[in-house]
Write a protein that binds this DNA or RNA. Structure first.
Lengths: 156, 156
DNA sequence: TTTAGTGCAAAAGTTTTGCATGGTC
DNA sequence: GACCATGCAAAACTTTTGCACTAAA
């Protein structure tokens, strides 16, 4: 999987690409949250998703797959993981929040409006710009979010 | 008003600062939408707001002020104005969408996490970076969104 | 007069919460 | 055994929609 991604997007390989249950468990433990069956399954479902997914969507897929996890648990899990920085919450199209298993640390996204695919940028390269703008406005910037929206190679 | 803003944020003065009903009417007409009483009032309420506001919040303030506008109309108006580019839809804190009367044209925002104030950047300065990243990923970028989150001068 | 906009209430959809039950340390 | 997590159903919210009515070109 890493190989395929590498070929397609040489500079966009997520640094976290654990799709093995045991690795997902490790990830949870490392982040200091208990690795319950439900949490691993939510995370696992998210991991097999190339696009971003809503809580509802994940719940339906789990259920269709015979993995019974309550909807409330899916919400609670995603909220927890989002706070722990294990998943990213992308709230682009208005009313519903999308989640994605992400690389750790600071990074940005390319969003494909054709297929909803999310491509991660592993380099930020904006620190100078952010610093300059912050200083000019006497603003103590603690975070910056960047999203590029457009069409991915397959969709253009 | 423009003067005060200029003193506080010399480089962040919105290019649209029409707070007079007639100017708001003009703005609507110029954008090709009918300037009804309700639309002008929603826009006017948004204009007196330094922060961003939700549809619900605007509705309550209008109603408290005796300006009767249906909630559905507030939603419909904001959706319309957002599509016409008269207002910006900022969906930062999850479930509810915030709106703000914005400068025309491409720009970015500084969001103050202390007081929720929104400061506009009148210069983008990221085109080179966007182009470089897009090319590197063979991505046809049509739009980019940037938000800096932190503390404004009064809150830091 | 013809079309577009509005208000109201109902509906739809997403997310949260209370509480009894079950699992984990 | 104490505590945390879960499931279920109800509740809370935000947003959308249908439809009769009103205002605008």
């Amino acid at each position: 999987m890493i190989l395929i991604l590498s070929l397609l997007y040489p500079t966009a390989v997520p640094t976290v690409t654990q799709h093995e249950p045991s690795e997902l468990t490790d990830l949870l433990v490392r982040k200091g949250v208990r690795a319950t069956r439900q949490r691993v399954e939510v995370l696992s479902e998210l991991a097999r998703e190339q696009h971003d997914a809503t809580a509802q969507a994940l719940w339906e897929r789990l259920r269709r797959r015979g993995r019974n996890v309550g909807l409330a648990t899916v919400y609670r899990t995603l909220a927890l993981l989002s706070e722990s920085g294990v998943v990213d919450a992308l709230s682009h199209h208005g009313t519903e929040t999308c989640y994605r298993l992400c690389a750790e640390g600071h990074h940005h996204h390319l969003l494909c409006s054709g297929c909803h695919r999310v491509i991660e940028l592993d380099d930020c390269g904006l620190s100078d710009w952010v610093d300059a703008v912050s200083e000019r406005h006497d603003f103590a910037t603690v975070e910056h979010r960047v999203e590029l929206v457009g069409l991915c190679p397959s969709c253009r």
